[in-house]
Every structure is written in C-alpha cells, then in structure tokens.
C-alpha cells in the first residue's frame, strides 16, 4: 500500500498529531497484531502499519 494511502487510512481511524495513544494488547506471535486505544476508540492493527505512527512517550496527557 502506498505511503500516502496508509497515512490517510490511519488519519481516518483517528491517528492525528496530538491524539493520545495507548497500546492495550498484543498478539501471541511476535506481538502482532496490536490493539491500540486512540482517544476513545480501540483499533486492532498490525505492527507494520503501526510503525508509521510517531509517538512520544510521557507527553502531557
């Protein structure tokens, strides 16, 4: 999938700059996929796509 398309899909699921994210669960095999809570929505996605999201730890809640 082209990077621009992936970017748009992630934004459509609520992954925009400034949103709080929290990894809730991980799969058994290689910790994949992961369940991420972004704002108040829980999304299951694979690590490969999640790698496109830049997160800073411990930022102001």
């Amino acid at each position: 999938m082209p990077a621009t398309e992936l970017e748009r899909r992630l934004i459509e699921l609520g992954f925009v700059e400034g949103a709080d994210v929290e990894v809730l669960h991980q799969g058994l095999f290689g910790g994949d996929p992961i369940a991420v809570r972004v704002a108040h929505t829980t999304i299951g996605l694979r690590r490969r796509e999640a790698m496109a999201i830049l997160v800073s730890v411990g930022a102001e809640p």
Binding site: M1, L10, A35, T41, T42, I43, G44, L45, R46
Partner: peptide, 8 residues
C-alpha cells in the same frame, strides 16, 4: 499482505 485495521 494488505493491512489489517479493525475497530474493536
């Protein structure tokens, strides 16, 4: 593989 993204 295509991505998997699913709201739970």
């Amino acid at each position: 593989g295509e991505p998997f993204m699913l709201e739970l």
